[in-house]
Design a protein around this nucleic acid. Sequence first.
DNA 1: CGGTGGTGGTTACGCGCGTAACCATCACTG
DNA 2: CAGTGATGGTTACGCGCGTAACCACCACCG
Lengths: 329, 329
Amino acid sequence: MTGRRPTSADVAREAGVSRATVSYVLNDAPGERIAQPTRERVLAAAARLGYAPSLAGRTLANGQSDIVLLAMPDAPSGELTSRFVDAVTRSLAAQGLTLVVHFDVPSAPRLPRLAAMLSVRAVLSLFPLPDADNAALRRMGIRVVPAGTESDGLATSALLRRQGRMQVEHLVAAGHTRLAYALPADPRLSVFADPRHDGVRQACAERDLPVPATFTVPDDPSAVVPAVRALLADAPQVTAICAYNDEVALAVLHGLRELAVHVPTRMALIGVDGIPLSAYSAPPLTTITVAPAATARHLARAAVARLAGDRATPVPIEDVLHLTPRATT
Amino acid sequence: MTGRRPTSADVAREAGVSRATVSYVLNDAPGERIAQPTRERVLAAAARLGYAPSLAGRTLANGQSDIVLLAMPDAPSGELTSRFVDAVTRSLAAQGLTLVVHFDVPSAPRLPRLAAMLSVRAVLSLFPLPDADNAALRRMGIRVVPAGTESDGLATSALLRRQGRMQVEHLVAAGHTRLAYALPADPRLSVFADPRHDGVRQACAERDLPVPATFTVPDDPSAVVPAVRALLADAPQVTAICAYNDEVALAVLHGLRELAVHVPTRMALIGVDGIPLSAYSAPPLTTITVAPAATARHLARAAVARLAGDRATPVPIEDVLHLTPRATT
DNA sequence: CGGTGGTGGTTACGCGCGTAACCATCACTG
DNA sequence: CAGTGATGGTTACGCGCGTAACCACCACCG
């Protein structure tokens, strides 16, 4: 009754057929030649025993598993991340593939090794992998599938850059020319922050604006005011701030309020993400709203399409981003 | 050069020994009887070929894999979650075990099936699993390891209940007797929200206070004000609100401000989590701060200790929670 | 010089599965 | 009635690995 797991041999015995028959039936073999009554006997036996095929056996037999490994950067994950995982899990499940998430924390088994051990079908990643990992995976014949490519604007970093550009577009349209960029303190966020920052700088360069001043917003609330004060002192001509995201923006907003700097007349401010709390600040925050579910579905679809070898990925990225003008600009 | 993955046979050939020798060397077999020079030849060959053992083969041979499956509820994951995953990954890696995260999204392969397929060493879970899953796993002889048990107060739900109790303790100490509870709108959050809510109700019951009025805070910012208005109308005698978390609390705070209800004189408010933004509201939010890294380590340690069969888990839970009194109470 | 024990390996097998190759049966045709 | 498909299965093998059982060799002792 402790019951080791039932194997296909158990099912075969229970159904009174050979193991091969069981395998053919349960896999719906393409050129199947199994009579209907037999099929049903097998299926019933499998159900009765609660049979689940051993991935190990199957993997060994056909050389690769049904596992797709999603490589996540070592960064704090938010709502978008979990929705993305969710969406990818669904899409892959529909194709009979199982998603396994690997968080690239420093002490975890390194990605290529884990991928090899699991005999994965492919490695999916939102961001370009380190060259060494890429090389190691390629050497072992493991496919690496990026969520999207630079050329079609589907890459995660392209999406992030576009968010930065949209911040600048809005501020410039409102007449600002001297901008600053507010970075988050957590270094692990740089995978997201760098592309957004790049987008801002590119958009400025294209308009012949000066390079935005940069400052880091500390995690410690009491340290925020000094950081904002320093910016105001170092770059007095700045009239608008692009924040890495809404959280950073709200921290900056707090600092400005404490320093009695009026928003938006003396200083404009814009965030990214459109988190619920952005609507509740005083004044409410202008932001680039990212539709999390849609973005996640979009990235998931792009990734899964690439996995399937599909080169045509139609979804335009504008759909998932839009400006939410409120009172800080 | 496309190179299929090297197997232990390849290593054996390269080193000029038998496959068994390779296996003994690479696994550091307990009663190993392999000469040092041979050992080194094998290790060198393995390194040269970039050999990584196939989990499938190993799993098949010894009946179970080195994988521990972490079952996550279908709920939006936040910072605490990702830190927990991180901490568990580290702890397990130190024991040669690999953590694989399974998000229980509706369309994913069901947990018992995945566990069986992976021939997992154990299933780890933060919350009690559905009875059906538990039974299925037990039937297949798969260990289920909870993060902690009710009896020692280490269970996740006990931790969450304690947060609710602490909210009440603080409000009662400030003289409040008629409380309300603000629930989040997303139904997936109920795994977290129910225990916190339970803690609040228990603490009230123990003090012979009336059962707190309950209301749900909608995600849509424009719907928050009506929700708060409805609460004020339905339960006019309420003088303090426990919010599910800081986000909900900040939404409620916004609603109260719009309705010109003074905080904290007419209505007190307390959150849970201690997110950075809680410090930036006007007035700043009183909250139960959860040290995310410490909590994650604590839960991870408890879970890993249980996995190792250790019954003695010393860490007291008080360490990771503390009251952060600010201006809303 | 036959036995004895230790050293350093090798050979052989099975884990659970997919699948190619094979085979028995039977209805039908020339 | 021998020959021919079609039908409905079965037998046999190998995937990569761990490990029990075995074996060749040599030093040493009685």
